[in-house]
C-alpha cells in the first residue's frame, strides 16, 4: 500500500514541471502581446528614434518571439527574472522585499479565518435549521458577497476614522521606519528578533485590520464549506454507530463526523491560503500595504513588464505549490486514497 501511495505521489509531482512550463509560456506571451511598448516605458515618449532603437536592441525585442522566450527561460533557470525599470532593482530582490509583507498578511488572515470559520461551520451544521444556523449563514453571506474594497473601506471608516481603535493604512508607523534590521522581511518577526517590543506591537496593530478584512472574506468561505461537509458527515451511518456506542456528543461531532471531513478541509484551507497570497491586491491597495499585490498593480500601470512577469510567476508558483501540498496532504491523511 505504501509503495502505491508513493507512486501516485510521484505522478502528481511529475506533473508540476509541465504545469510550470505552461504557466511561464502563457505569462510570457500575454506580456508580449499586450499593447504596451516596454521601450517607450523606459526611454519616454520624447526620446529620439536612435535611442528607442538602441533600447529595443538591448531588450532583445528585435529578435523572433521564440528566441526571446528561450532567452527568458535560460535566465529564469538561474533565477534571473530581469531588472525592474520602476525600482531599478532586480525583480528577484523586489519580490524578496514585497512578498513577505503579503505572506505576513495572508498567514495571519488564514489562521484567523480557519480558527473562526471551522468552529462556526461545525456549529451551524450541528444546529442546522435553528436561529444559530441562520445567523451564521447571514454573517457568512455578507463576507462572501460584499466586495472586499467596500469591506476594507468600511473597516477603515469604522475602526480607524470613527472609533480610532486601529491605526491607519500602511505597514507601520512612520516613526518606526527602518528601526529594526531587515532579516526575514516579515516585520513582526524582524521586530521580535531585534527585541523591539514597541515596533512589534505597532506592526501587529497595523497588520490586524487588513488581515481581519481578508480573514472575514476567507472565513465566510471556510465556514460555508465546513457546514456543507459536516451536514454530509453527520447524516452518515457511522454517526449513528458512534451514538449507539454511547459516545459523548462532542466526541461524535469532532472525532467521528469532523474526523471524516478534516482531510477535505485541509485542501480547502490550503487553496484559500494560496488565494489570499495572490488575491490580496485590492486589500493591499486600500490599506497601502507594501505587498506583492501592490507591486504587481503599480508595475502593470507602469508597463514594467519584467516585474509583472516575475510577480505573476511567483503567484503562479505559490498556487501550484499549495495545490501540490494539498494533494500530498490528502494522500497522506486519508486512508482511503491510495
Amino acid at each position: 500500500m505504501a509503495t502505491s501511495r508513493l507512486k501516485a505521489l510521484a505522478a502528481t509531482t511529475a506533473s508540476v514541471p509541465i504545469t510550470l512550463f505552461g504557466l511561464v509560456l502563457v505569462t510570457f506571451l500575454i506580456g508580449r502581446v499586450m499593447p504596451i511598448d516596454p521601450v517607450l516605458a523606459i526611454v519616454g515618449d520624447r526620446a529620439p528614434a536612435d535611442v528607442v532603437a538602441a533600447a529595443r536592441l538591448e531588450l532583445g525585442l528585435d529578435r523572433p518571439l521564440y528566441v526571446q522566450f528561450w532567452i527568458y527561460l535560460t535566465k529564469l533557470a538561474v533565477g534571473d527574472l530581469g531588472r525592474s525599470v520602476m525600482t531599478s532593482h532586480t525583480v528577484g530582490e523586489d519580490i524578496r522585499r514585497f512578498f513577505p509583507a503579503t505572506m505576513e498578511l495572508a498567514t495571519v488572515a488564514i489562521f484567523l479565518a480557519a480558527g473562526i470559520g471551522i468552529p462556526l461551520g461545525v456549529l451551524a451544521a450541528v444546529k442546522q435549521g435553528t436561529r444559530i444556523d441562520h445567523t451564521i449563514r447571514v454573517v457568512c453571506l455578507a463576507g462572501h458577497s460584499l466586495p472586499i474594497f467596500v469591506l476594507s473601506l468600511l473597516s477603515l471608516l469604522v475602526f480607524y476614522a470613527t472609533l480610532g481603535w486601529a491605526p491607519g493604512p500602511g505597514r507601520q508607523n512612520l516613526m518606526f521606519d527602518d528601526m529594526v534590521p531587515v532579516v526575514t522581511n516579515f516585520l513582526t518577526v524582524d521586530a521580535l528578533l531585534a527585541g523591539e517590543w514597541e515596533v512589534f506591537r505597532d506592526a501587529v496593530a497595523h497588520l490586524l485590520q487588513p488581515a481581519g478584512v481578508l480573514a472575514y472574506f476567507a472565513m465566510a468561505f471556510i465556514a460555508r464549506m465546513t457546514r456543507a461537509f459536516m451536514l454530509d458527515a453527520l447524516a452518515g451511518e457511522y454517526v449513528i454507530t458512534a451514538r449507539a456506542k454511547g459516545l459523548s456528543p462532542m466526541r461524535v461531532i469532532w472525532r467521528h463526523a469532523f474526523g471524516n471531513i478534516s482531510v477535505r478541509l485541509v485542501t480547502i484551507i490550503a487553496l484559500t491560503y494560496a488565494g489570499l497570497l495572490e488575491g490580496a491586491v485590492v486589500t493591499e491597495t486600500v490599506f497601502s500595504w507594501p505587498g506583492l499585490g501592490q507591486y504587481l498593480t503599480i508595475s502593470l500601470l507602469n508597463a514594467d513588464m519584467n516585474a509583472v512577469l516575475g510577480a505573476t510567476l511567483v503567484v503562479g508558483v505559490t498556487y501550484l505549490g499549495f495545490n501540490l501540498l494539498a494533494d500530498v496532504l490528502y494522500r497522506l491523511l486519508d486512508p482511503r486514497v491510495s
Partner: peptide
C-alpha cells in the same frame, strides 16, 4: 461499509 467510520481503523 457505511456504518463503520472510514477514517478510523
Amino acid at each position: 461499509k457505511y456504518s463503520l467510520n472510514p477514517v478510523m481503523t
